[in-house]
Simulated assay, not measured.
Amino acid sequence: MRTVFWAAFWVFLLDQVSKIVVVHLLDLRTLGEIDVLPPFVNLRMAWNSGINFGLFSGHSDAARMVLIAIALLIVGFVLVWVWRDPPGRTGRIAAGLLIGGALGNVLDRVLYGAVADFLNMSCCGIENPYAFNVADIAIFAGAFGLVLFPGSGSGKGSPKRKKGT
């Protein structure tokens, strides 16, 4: 569980520091756009009150609290899953990525009422209208990693096998 904790901690810290630097110090919230390596990497301010790609956006406090509760439930579920059926090191890191990213976005919802998204990438004449953040990358990578590197089936919560079966 130590690996899960440290992976979550570093992702959470990187996410929050990146938001402080980009949104506040570079003042993206006022500027709205900063071209870094156009068209490949740009900073575009977007306040996401919903889930991925702005789905289920609602500006009500009730919707925000539901999304916070869902994220915390997912974090709890992943922690219990990893504790009961421990994956290998890569799976534990993946769990930490997912947890750290989820908690980073939860903190945004608590502090700002929405998630601060700012990374925008486009390529090859296709303009991407969506923005994301470090937490979103970690959540995606963590979920993907947990699919590829699930628990071993020999954890604390798995049934005991009889010898010879």
Rank of each mutant, 00 (worst) to 15 (best):
G91Q: 12
I51S: 12
S158C: 15
K156V: 15
K160F: 07
E127N: 07
A69Y: 11
F12D: 01
T3M: 12
H24T: 09
D35I: 04
I99Y: 03
V134K: 01
L79H: 14
D35T: 12
S60E: 13
I68C: 11
A46P: 00
R92T: 02
T30C: 05
A138H: 01
L111C: 10
V78E: 04
P39D: 02
L37Q: 00
K160C: 03
A69P: 15
S122K: 04
V4P: 04
S18M: 03
F9M: 08
K19E: 02
R29V: 07
G96W: 10
T165P: 01
D27M: 07
V75E: 09
V41I: 13
C123H: 08
V41T: 00
I139M: 03
R84V: 11
I99R: 02
A116H: 04
D117W: 05
A46Q: 06
G155E: 14
A143S: 08
M45S: 08
G145T: 07
L107M: 12
G88V: 10
F40H: 02
G100W: 05
M45D: 08
G88L: 12
G164Y: 06
N128I: 09
V147M: 13
A69G: 14
G88A: 14
F77H: 05
N52F: 13
P129N: 06
A102I: 01
L26W: 13
D27L: 05
G76T: 08
H24V: 06
A95M: 11
P38A: 09
T3F: 09
I68K: 10
V11P: 00
G125W: 09
V4C: 10
T30V: 12
F12M: 03
C123I: 11
N120S: 10
A8Q: 07
F5A: 11
W83C: 11
V36S: 00
W10E: 01
L97E: 00
W10T: 03
D136H: 06
A46K: 06
D117P: 03
L26E: 03
G32W: 07
W47N: 05
G58I: 02
A7C: 03
I93V: 09
K19Q: 02
W81S: 14
F56Y: 13
G113N: 11
G155Q: 13
I74Q: 08
R29C: 04
M1K: 14
V41D: 02
R64I: 10
F140N: 05
S122H: 07
I20W: 15
F132G: 03
L14R: 01
F9N: 03
D108N: 06
D136Q: 04
F132K: 05
A116S: 07
R44Y: 05
L25K: 10
H24N: 10
A138I: 00
D136C: 04
K162D: 09
P87K: 12
I70C: 08
P150E: 04
L25A: 10
V22W: 05
V41F: 13
D61P: 14
L26D: 03
V75D: 08
G125P: 10
L73K: 11
T30I: 11
K163I: 11
I34S: 08
R2A: 13
L26C: 06
V82H: 11
K162P: 07
E127A: 06
D15S: 02
C124N: 13
S154P: 00
G50F: 08
